[in-house]
Design a binder for these strands. Structure first.
Lengths: 124, 124
DNA sequence: GAACTAAATCGCTATATAGCAATAAAGCAA
DNA sequence: TTGCTTTATTGCTATATAGCGATTTAGTTC
């Protein structure tokens, strides 16, 4: 694995972020901190879907999905358009995909580490 | 924009994630969903720090910082070691940096978009 | 041992929100 | 209009947690 560590050229000095900025970032992460919302985003990665479809796929009630979608809309992650009776939803930001991929990779790496540690511990 | 569809090598098909996986990912994002915790992580990007230092930098109480650090430790994002009277904290995962950078870039892009839209609206 | 420092834990309150059932609102069809 | 479908909103409960002060625990020094 390539260690993404420090290349001496591009200085990776971390900026000191203001409280306002931290609140904004926190709000973005909070929008991603719910399993149901992640399920919705995951479903929207494949293609656009109506709210009804998302209700089916989410495993929770319609009112709940509606509220979760409002959260994702407020966070700028999902956009909706009316099409007749239905409201179609789409991922409004490809970055979401990246974030989830990075998180998955992180979890996999952690799991692999734990697995390896256990193997090392039990050489019987 | 590169459409993710046509790279035959790295298949970008979004996997359907299990509920358990979604809960794990959500827990990771939830650990990042608090301004104080982001401040702690941001402070640790520069260098390792004691809990006392973090209390100073965080602008909140010692008990609170201690609890937030516990959350970050449980999420595998911060590790601690005892050094005499003090507990030293360090970022245990460089990925955190990436995630925050991506979020910042996202927010900047959104802000730039809004700014541009306003400029277009007011050509007086 | 006592005294001191640093950090963790406890007890509590206030706030936020996930979930649900019921209702309202929006759009189409007769 | 009346119905029907789809989605949004409302009212509510239960749970989670951020924040604080007080206390306890861990480690050092005397």
């Amino acid at each position: 694995m390539a260690t993404p560590s420090d290349s001496p050229k591009t200085q990776e000095q971390p900026k000191k972020l203001s409280d306002a900025t931290l609140r904004l970032i926190a709000a973005q992460f909070r929008a991603l901190s719910e399993p149901v919302r992640l399920r919705l985003l995951n479903s929207l990665m494949e293609r656009d879907r109506s709210v009804g479809e998302l209700v089916e796929l989410s495993g929770t009630g319609q009112a709940n999905v509606s509220k979760h979608l409002a959260v994702l809309r407020d966070a700028g992650m999902v956009s909706t358009r009316r099409e007749g009776l239905r409201t179609m939803c789409r991922l409004s930001d490809p970055v979401i995909r990246h974030l989830c991929e990075i998180m998955c990779a992180r979890l996999k790496a952690e799991h692999a580490e734990r697995t390896k540690a256990l193997e090392d511990l039990a050489p019987l």
